[in-house]
Design a protein around this nucleic acid. Structure first.
Lengths: 210, 210
DNA sequence: CATTATAGTAAGCGTTCGCTTACTTGTCAA
DNA sequence: TTGACAAGTAAGCGAACGCTTACTATAATG
């Protein structure tokens, strides 16, 4: 499937990048030595410098690759309709991608532990995990409000309200079933509060209130 | 006022702890050398080992001190009444404490960057910044629901909904006025959605709906 | 006044760091 | 066949690491 996690099919350079991402994301950039990385890919540490001019270039390569993976994935999330189901769909797509894709999970951890030391990392962290999701949801709510589906509330507030719990529980590495249950309840409750006119939903059994 | 930030009145040991906290919280434990700490307090690096048996003990001391500061502060937050005003009060008290108190800000950053490397740090991070606030708010909502003030919704969902935005924006180091405005709107909107019977609020001009 | 403990320093120990050098091996086109 | 080159290794460089030692100044105590 995903050859990024299948070490046997990776080139040495790819293996170094992947191993470095794994180590950097839990230990932080400075706490990981080039010898640790080399050991992880069963090579001499000198071979790293055949593929990268220095340690920093490994980190830069990671950032470039992960930003591109993020860009490609989020570009694919294009709403083809604009109703409540789509909001739920977008929410779940974003969340699943952020929690399922191993590179994204590791990249988020890396950005988390490097955000204060490295301002560029902090900027990327905010863009990817806060600003972009809020903006996307915000613009969706704007349309839904205009169409009369959602109550007239500041769309950024709505975006914040629905997204923040995902952000919080995800940061906590607690994505077990109890959390998913709470998040599901949260979305249901949010829908109940936000929707102005549910007649356009009543067609779908799934959304019918008890 | 707070002698923790007044270096002139600190003992050498206190100065070392404070300087270490500042450095650890932005750079991470491993990326900070004992020589950097010593330079920060204008002393020879050897003097650190007159006060601490090793580098790790500085970190342990920081954790002990900050956990105690946290415990003392949150123990002081005891609701004397149980109405909506109190919920807002608790929310704001927790938030202000978490954003204003310099030791808590630095400690939160430290836990953030060390949470994956050090499981104990991860545990403390979740306890202080997620579990404890959710539990506190949750129990308050339970009472308010029982009293009929708040709609019958899972109290943990309510706690999540009101607290998560504070968590998210705070993690992002974005506590500027625009964020505070959004958070204020968020609380207002939450109140509007959650309250079952607003007659007990109507006495207070502040809460009267337009 | 002599003693003792505390808080500081300069120097340096052994180890690990990022990185380089000199060298070997395998591959593949001319 | 050979020659060029990419991909690997062992060894080691200078610097920085955590930490120790030997020593000094100061202040309190018997």
């Amino acid at each position: 499937m995903d050859n990024n996690t299948d070490n046997t099919k990776m080139t040495t350079k790819e293996a170094i990048v992947y191993e470095s991402l794994k180590l950097f994301s839990t230990n932080g950039y400075d706490a990981v030595s080039t010898r640790m990385i080399a050991k992880g890919v069963n090579l001499s540490d000198a071979v790293i410098y055949k593929h990268f001019k220095n340690k920093r270039e490994i980190l830069d390569t990671i950032v470039t690759i992960c930003k591109e993976k993020y860009r490609a994935k989020t570009a694919a999330i294009a709403p083809d309709s604009m109703d409540w189901k789509m909001v739920e769909q977008i929410c779940m797509d974003i969340f699943k991608f952020q929690v399922t894709d191993e590179w994204m999970v590791l990249f988020r951890k890396l950005l988390t532990v490097e955000q204060y030391k490295n301002p560029e990392m902090g900027k990327i962290f905010r863009e990817i995990w806060i600003d972009a999701p809020l903006e996307k949801l915000s613009s969706m709510f704007s349309v839904l409000i205009e169409q009369g589906y959602v109550k007239k509330v500041n769309p950024k507030v709505l975006a914040t309200d629905i997204y923040a719990p995902f952000f919080m529980y995800r940061s906590a590495e607690m994505a077990d079933e109890e959390i998913l249950k709470i998040l599901q309840e949260h979305v249901t409750n949010f829908r109940y509060n936000a929707i102005a006119d549910e007649s356009y939903l009543i067609m779908d059994e799934k959304y019918r209130r008890k």
